[in-house]
Design a protein around this nucleic acid. Structure first.
Lengths: 245, 245
DNA sequence: CCGAAATGTCTATTACGCTAGACAACTATA
DNA sequence: TATAGTTGTCTAGCGTAATAGACATTTCGG
């Protein structure tokens, strides 16, 4: 928890953005929970060794995100502080895991399509390249804030109604059940962290330069036959992944 | 694999850095494996919708990292492409998991200290706050490239010789064994992705703006008694975490 | 009610990021 | 050997980031 507060110049990342990222981090670390306020601009400027105007740019960006609110004469108050804990285990299910951490959790279907499986997707689903599969693009939100976006592939033959059932039931688990699959397990998950691309910035409503955790996962039925290949991108500053063993 | 190649302006992140990040990503995705070369500067400039000079800045940064090398008249060659797969499971061990992915894997002891456990550390190790514990700071490298840095805490009473044994044996697992603990398991892991701080930039030899995956983990003996609380920060562009269930 | 402390706003200056265009130097191929 | 394709280098100009300083405005405590 002793993240050193230093910024570096001439790195292609503007000082105000580095500072905004550090302040966002310290807020989510709970460093200012006692006061509920960010330190004064002059103090921050001294801490980071920059001009007060530069700190103001950083705070303006955070205010733009709705994370803080400045009040003249008083200071800069913290508006919101959250990082949902998202469990990943052999029995990972999206909505269930988040449980009571948020009041309103929803998954929205953005698009769906039928297409031939190629490359990694065919390999992951253990089907011949060219076999038809259904692609679903989803965005998941908690209390109105986007948490993750995902692209999933299902074998067409078994789960041709995936899009329709999801639209009707609002959950992958339920859509599987409606098509005769009562249970499934996570067999593989790979995680990579990187900067969000333009698509993800828009879908997850992130500020540019933000980080996503990309999870490539395979789910299989109880017999071990793959039923779903998915790539999920989490907004890194909104989630904490909890691995269960 | 269809990461859209678009960059955004006025975000506090210079275009050349955004482009460098995207090119680094496409290299690690294996997009240029056929040719072993990055597309020509003029092509990249057109793709990203920027001036050729801006692309040159991005390539210069990647050349600085040793990732690519430009040769006048020929093009820009890819020098190195790696993202080690690091398995995380109930039986996670550092050196073992990486196996034959790299020739030379080493963990170096930076510092050690005895101090009273507080807060999260005491909770994680299930010991009374104030109880003495040993802190070890390590950096792990594969083939000379830093992969991760970590800070671990061990209960002083059982593992007072941790630093000495690690120094002698070069491995946590062996140091445990030397102190009478033949086996241990991972009981909890939490992952968070964020920008690297100044310390991490230096230790992992990252370029500013780089991403780290921070893993907070607890290992326990076969009876379930916690033996190690650790925070490991991985250089995000050098590893892929593979969760085993 | 005054003054300290905090944010808000303005001007001016310097450094860097980005664009634009032109041409040199080098490599590979026909 | 000529030529197309690629990287290397230079100049010029413009907009933004960052610095510096001054002062206005608001809040809160003594």
């Amino acid at each position: 928890m002793n993240a050193k507060k230093t910024v570096e110049r001439q790195t292609g990342v503007a000082l105000w953005r580095q500072i905004a990222d550090l302040i966002r981090l310290s807020i989510s670390n709970g460093d200012h929970d006692q006061t509920g306020m960010v330190p004064p601009e002059t103090v921050l400027a001294a801490q980071f060794g920059v001009n007060r105007h530069t700190v103001r740019s950083a705070l303006a960006a955070l205010a733009d995100e709705g994370l803080v609110q400045a009040i003249q004469g008083r200071g800069t108050m913290i508006q919101r502080q959250e990082r949902l804990s998202f469990p990943i285990s052999r029995r990972t299910r999206f909505s269930q895991g988040l449980g009571d951490q948020a009041r309103d959790i929803e998954a929205k279907l953005l698009a769906h399509e039928t297409l031939p499986a190629v490359g990694e997707i065919a390999t992951g689903l253990q089907i011949a390249p060219g076999t038809a599969c259904v692609q679903l693009d989803l965005v998941s939100s908690a209390d109105g804030r986007p948490l993750s976006c995902s692209t999933s592939y299902f074998p067409m033959e078994r789960f041709g109604q995936m899009a329709e059932q999801f639209e009707r039931l609002g959950s992958i688990t339920k859509a599987f059940a409606a098509q005769g699959l009562a249970d499934y397990v996570r067999v593989s998950t790979e995680l990579v962290a990187r900067h969000a691309d333009a698509d993800e910035l828009a879908l997850l409503r992130l500020s540019p330069g933000a980080i996503v955790i990309a999870a490539t996962a395979i789910n299989a039925d109880p017999d071990g036959v793959p039923v779903q290949f998915s790539r999920t991108r989490f907004a890194a500053d909104r989630v904490k992944l909890k691995l269960e063993t």
